[in-house]
């Protein structure tokens, strides 16, 4: 695979090195309190794994960060700027924050290559030829360059998810959110996706990753954040979290997912 740099080349000034910062974020779905006073800071270049039981608000957390969901109160800032409400500013912010979904969500009517070039051409105004060249580099980097002219449905799940990562990278994002990127994959395809993600982490990409893959957390994460019932219960480095969790809720959760 070609060696392509993916880390943002220019770094706008952030306060205290924090690229992403959530302060006292609250979110309800009707009566359901999904995010309870969430405080979270991610430094540029940091890789944070979010772990927690199903329904604890992990996806909602990701989705509030690029404003696919609104929040009730609190603040979210990216590179020192608060999330814009709507319109052009919001679109620009979304271009800075990549998102990789559990179900890939590749544009089903477009080829793999078109999936990767669409954002740069239509949202950033990159010239078609330049966008294509960059897309081919990225597809090569994630190991699916030979599938460039196929439709998503013709690819395996692992290949589709790697294309989705290339699509996010093509926008040169400051931060990429991964919402359970390997949960929909057959076991034999999980590692091909995790390997790409580990590579990104090594290259200095800032990442927020919702995953239960402990191997990934151990290999690539700087920090593990444990969520339960909409709250951040505990944060620590991966080794400490998996071997010596402090809270009872984390101990209970780990006892369910760890092999006995």
């Amino acid at each position: 695979m070609a060696d392509v740099s993916v880390a943002p080349s220019t770094a706008p000034s952030d306060e205290g090195g924090a690229l992403l910062s959530l302060r006292a974020v609250e979110k309800h779905f009707g009566d359901l309190h999904v995010l309870r006073h969430v405080d979270l800071t991610i430094a540029r270049g940091e890789v944070v794994v979010v772990i927690g039981p199903s329904g604890s608000g992990k996806s909602t957390l990701c989705r509030t960060i690029n404003r696919l969901e609104t929040i009730d109160s609190g603040t979210i800032t990216i590179a020192g700027r608060e999330l814009p409400e709507e319109g052009r500013d919001l679109a620009r912010l979304r271009a800075q924050v990549g998102m990789v979904f559990q179900s890939f969500n590749l544009f089903a009517h477009k080829t793999v290559l078109e999936n990767v070039t669409l954002g740069p051409i239509k949202a950033k105004g990159v010239k078609r030829a330049a966008a294509k060249e960059r897309a081919m580099e990225l597809l090569d980097r994630v190991g699916v360059a030979n599938q460039a002219h196929k439709l998503p449905a013709q690819l395996s799940g692992g290949q589709q998810q790697r294309v989705a990562i290339a699509r996010a990278l093509a926008m040169d994002p400051e931060l990429i959110l991964f919402d359970e990127p390997t949960s929909a994959l057959d076991p034999e395809m999980i590692n091909e996706v995790l390997d790409v993600m580990v590579g990104l982490a090594r290259d200095g990409m800032t990442m927020l990753v919702v995953t239960h893959e402990m191997g990934f957390a151990r290999r690539a994460a700087d920090r593990v954040v444990f969520m339960d019932a909409g709250e951040i219960v505990e944060e620590s480095d991966p080794e400490t979290f998996f071997t010596a969790p402090r809270s009872d809720r984390a101990k209970d959760f780990l006892s369910k997912i760890l092999p006995h």
Partner: peptide
């Protein structure tokens, strides 16, 4: 719905 979300996520209005 994921198609529209993916479109919004790459900065399309």
């Amino acid at each position: 719905v994921g198609q529209a979300e993916a479109a919004r996520a790459i900065g399309l209005g």
